[in-house]
Amino acid sequence: MKNILYGIMYSFKEIKNSKIFYSFLIFALILISGSYFVSQTSFISQGRIMVDFSIFAISIFNIFIGIFIGASVVYDDIEKKSIFLSITRPVKRTEYLTGRFLGLAAAIIFSTVIMMFIFYFVLLIMHKFIVPVVPNAGAAVSGAKSVHNVHSNNVNLQNNSASYAASGHPFTFYTLPQPLIIQGLFIIIESVFISAAALLFSLVTSKALASIFAILIFFIGNVSSRMNDLVKPVKKIIDGKVVIVHQANHILASIVRFIYTVLPNFSIFNISSEAAYKVNVSSGMILYRAAYGICYTTLLFIIASIIFSKKDIS
């Protein structure tokens, strides 16, 4: 356990100092900060555009970190032979791999938190989308204006803060609405998930191919549920009977169903529309989706561990 912990710290430090991590982080921060200018292209829904744009930037750059660093975190160690000194210590290979992987997960959490903070400050400066935190009424105020405010862009900050200040509190704290915080959590799970896939591929193929495979898995995983919906038979009720009016080719439908069943479904981690419209996400749904991501990641990691424990490192 101690060895894993040291491995996590070492990996985290190494990834944190790597150029690729910095580049993605800085680029994402530029995009988040620039989301204001993008939102100015519209006269309406500026807040929504800011949220959509920033969430996209946070998500895509963390996915990139997951894919590219996931594909290189162990592969580069083997290529550059720096792994030789690590696994010839009294360390189990599984401990080494766990340390490397969790170090990467820690780096992804770190980058997401930084990006979310910058995003929060941008929203705070623009006074858009943030909600005041009122003690004992937190849920009521911060949460959910949800259905009520589905089509509004701004929370009435003045009124809330004025009433809060009037109650004797000099400062008002603002927070992000619940769906945005949950979207941040889902981005972490999704990025760690794809990094586990990239790590697994990097153990059986080259770094470039591992990155390409991981990108393909991510892409297919994002569209598979929509494709599955498309190949479902279209039914209509005619004269009180259910009639299939359109049926996709059987072979094509089977292939799509197979892909949909076997490959991970990444689209469930995308709740940007809920975030943009401030619709609260139920705790059951959060738990189900988080458990799905964590279980799949664990499965991929176990397969990677089995391969790594038998691998000749030369």
Partner: peptide, 10 residues
């Protein structure tokens, strides 16, 4: 090892 190497940045 022969030709040892270490990660960047540390």
């Amino acid at each position: 090892p022969e030709n040892p190497s270490f990660p960047r940045g540390l």
